[in-house]
Computed example of a mutant assay.
Amino acid sequence: MSIAFATPWILLMLPLPLLVWWLVPPHRERTAALRIPFFRSVTAATGVRAADGARVLARSRLQVLATTLCWILIVVGLARPERLGDPITVTNAARDLILAVDISGSMDDRDMETPEGDRVQRLQAVKDVVRAFVAEREGDRIALIVFGANAYVQVPFTEDLDSVAELLEQTQTGMAGPNTAIGDAIGLAIRAFEDSEIEERLLILLSDGADTASAMSPINAAEIAADAQITIYTIGVGNPDGSGEERLDPATLEDIARRGGGAFYYATDVEGLAEIYAEIDTLNPRVTDSATYQPREPISHIPFALALLIGVLTSAYLHLARGQKAAA
């Protein structure tokens, strides 16, 4: 445990009583006196020794010691002593990251192959990979946007990574409509970043279809995002040779990523999808802003209480001692 003073300059007052004692003359006052003849004869007869007219009251060692201790304790208390706790390091988010996940009806297709050779639902494969990716993002603030025919903020910016993974797990295909609105998802991400005061902003957008429902063109949205200093990575998991809503448009996703200063990736299986997120993680390592501080607990009340206790006990002792002398 260590002690520090909030106002250490107050300790300069410690020698003040000595300076007063050295530099200020003793207090003098005039008192009434009775003059009688034959004064020396009277004092000799009564056995009383005459004292000087000017007299400085004597103080016992106990009074001097108690007064000195009380003064030191009062000055120490005025200097505001504080007990310092163990240093605490606080890590703040230094980057905001948005995951935009396509949950249109086509994400229900079971064409994503696992390393064991099993075929799983596209959205479930994304959930499994993103869960591991999110778990490694400690220090980032993450938001989750889901989109189909419309785009919605599923999770606003938070450092609670478990909540992001849990709410993504609860997401089901078709919840946002059957179509695909990539441009609206980017536009919603731009609006979400408007409230962010962090300079580094990253958007990872995953889709398995072509844009068919956006009110804003995905290319225009990407240009606006680039002007807002938002880096965009796009991931395609669909079939480029499909038709209608299920046809992946890699050219558009690649153009979005190029305009957003990121990169486009295409995944055909779960392992490839995991490698893509690992590469994105390598290209954008975790960035944190940490600060260390020591908690301070004021303890001024301790020296003040000790000074009061010493003063009360000393006064009580001197009062009792004076009473015993008077009785004797």
Score class of each variant (00 low, 15 high):
residue 86 D to G: 14
residue 12 L to W: 11
residue 271 E to R: 10
residue 4 A to N: 05
residue 64 V to H: 15
residue 18 L to D: 04
residue 104 S to A: 09
residue 99 L to H: 00
residue 186 I to L: 12
residue 194 E to H: 10
residue 176 A to K: 07
residue 96 D to Y: 13
residue 71 W to H: 01
residue 274 A to R: 15
residue 161 L to R: 05
residue 200 E to I: 00
residue 212 T to S: 06
residue 123 L to S: 06
residue 201 R to D: 07
residue 115 P to I: 02
residue 265 Y to A: 03
residue 39 F to A: 09
residue 314 T to S: 15
residue 315 S to V: 00
residue 111 D to F: 07
residue 315 S to M: 04
residue 192 A to H: 10
residue 190 I to K: 01
residue 318 L to N: 13
residue 266 Y to T: 04
residue 215 A to N: 11
residue 239 N to R: 03
residue 248 L to T: 02
residue 204 I to N: 14
residue 312 V to E: 06
residue 96 D to A: 11
residue 298 P to R: 13
residue 57 L to N: 01
residue 95 R to N: 05
residue 51 A to I: 10
residue 274 A to S: 15
residue 193 F to D: 13
residue 290 S to H: 10
residue 188 L to E: 09
residue 177 G to N: 00
residue 31 T to F: 08
residue 280 I to Q: 05
residue 185 A to W: 06
residue 59 R to N: 00
residue 320 L to S: 08
residue 166 E to S: 13
residue 209 G to T: 04
residue 187 G to R: 00
residue 277 Y to V: 03
residue 138 E to G: 06
residue 123 L to K: 12
residue 218 P to K: 03
residue 92 N to H: 07
residue 130 V to E: 13
residue 89 T to Y: 09
residue 181 A to M: 02
residue 179 N to W: 05
residue 281 D to Q: 15
residue 215 A to R: 13
residue 169 E to V: 00
residue 148 G to A: 14
residue 324 Q to G: 05
residue 230 I to F: 06
residue 101 V to S: 01
residue 115 P to N: 02
residue 110 R to I: 05
residue 121 Q to Y: 08
residue 29 E to N: 05
residue 118 D to P: 12
residue 261 G to C: 08
residue 317 Y to I: 08
residue 169 E to R: 02
residue 100 A to D: 02
residue 290 S to I: 07
residue 212 T to Y: 06
